[in-house]
């Protein structure tokens, strides 16, 4: 009951936050300059430029411009991407699929590995395994992701030649239909083992690059949370009941250590979205991040707007999910205070 009310309240607030974000970003883009830069060329006459300006309502005040933009966005028209030479809405989904495939795989591996490593180190507190894990975790959080990716490329691509760059082998990609845009899924649907291997092969290096930092963050949090839980009296009380160490750890300490860790896992969603930009540049991954990077350098406002809005909506939803899991794990949590 309590939880449902909270979800409803958050869902009501969400559009307002998205509205706020869009106002902030819209204002910033318009301060930065005219959105029609991508359409302009030197051959255009003054009359043609003015015609364009009118089409984009640039002669109107800012809030009217915002109104026109918002109306378009609600109808699914996010403007024209100069970088992709196509409407934003048209190129968005295939690029999202590429980014999704990359980040979901790294997130899944990072969460599992991070939780496992955190427990591994926390249980062996102050033994050498713990120290090694901690050093790796601390360095992982300070590692510049783009540099880590390049070092991996230098070793495994340039020198050893074990892994390729890009998302796929062009011939294999062309040999099958892509109904979902997720390469791994498409290759399974097409029954192509070669395609699946190709997809995984291309995914490994960028996924490691993207996931390493997240593993570090989750490991650190899980370890310190577990160490703290293991010192709680209820852990001793569980031992005093005669429970074997397996149950003391799994049912009591580990479960409760997950509570603070879940918050951090929610934050890693943001971390992954941010990291995807650099990782996609380095590995020439045709996703949202790489698109955003080119848009940023070339001042493609429609793309920037859409991307920022999309990330914030995703981030807000992720936080909502985190809150719900949080409440499920810890009955003491009263949400919304």
């Amino acid at each position: 009951m309590q939880l449902r009310d909270y979800i409803i309240r958050r869902l009501i607030i969400l559009p307002f936050l998205v509205f706020g974000v869009s106002v902030v970003v819209f204002t910033l883009t318009r301060i930065g300059g005219s959105p029609i830069g991508v359409y302009l060329s030197h051959e255009m006459s003054a009359a043609e430029v003015q015609q364009l300006e009118e089409r984009f309502h640039l002669n109107e005040p800012l809030y009217v411009q915002y109104f026109y933009w918002a109306r378009g966005a609600l109808q699914g028209d996010f403007g024209y991407s100069g970088v992709a030479s196509a409407p934003v809405s048209q190129v968005f989904w295939p690029k999202l699929a590429a980014t999704l495939e990359l980040s979901v795989v790294s997130a899944a591996v990072a969460v599992m590995l991070g939780l496992w490593l955190g427990v591994f180190a926390g249980v062996r507190r102050n033994r050498w395994q713990d120290h090694v894990t901690r050093v790796v975790a601390v360095s992982g959080a300070s590692l510049p992701l783009f540099w880590f990716g390049i070092v991996l490329l230098i070793i495994f691509w340039a020198n050893l030649g074990w892994f390729p760059v890009g998302r796929s082998d062009a011939d294999i990609w062309a040999s099958m239909p892509h109904p979902t845009g997720l390469y791994m899924l498409d290759s399974i649907l097409a029954g192509s083992w070669r395609g699946f291997v190709d997809a995984v092969w291309h995914l490994i290096l960028p996924a490691i690059t993207l996931g390493f930092g997240a593993v570090a963050i989750i490991t650190r949090m899980m370890r310190s949370a577990l160490v703290e839980e293991l010192q709680q009296e209820y852990v001793d009380a569980a031992r005093a009941k005669g429970l074997p160490e397996r149950l003391v750890l799994n049912r009591h300490a580990r479960r409760n250590a997950l509570v603070p860790t879940v918050t951090v896992i929610g934050l890693t969603i943001a971390f992954l979205m941010q990291g995807a930009i650099a990782a996609e540049i380095i590995f020439r991954w045709p996703g949202l991040g790489r698109w955003m990077a080119s848009a940023v350098v070339r001042g493609d406002q429609a793309t920037i707007m859409t991307y920022v809005l999309f990330t914030s909506v995703l981030f807000l939803f992720a936080n909502l999910v985190v809150d719900i899991i949080y409440a499920k794990l810890d009955p003491r949590v009263r949400l919304g205070d």
Binding site: G20, V25, G33, A270, Q274, G299, Q301, L316
Partner: peptide
């Protein structure tokens, strides 16, 4: 509600 780096990226791009 906007991840830091992405926000900074958008602002820097506009500037």
């Amino acid at each position: 509600s906007i991840p830091e780096l992405i926000f900074a990226l958008a602002v820097a791009a506009i500037l």
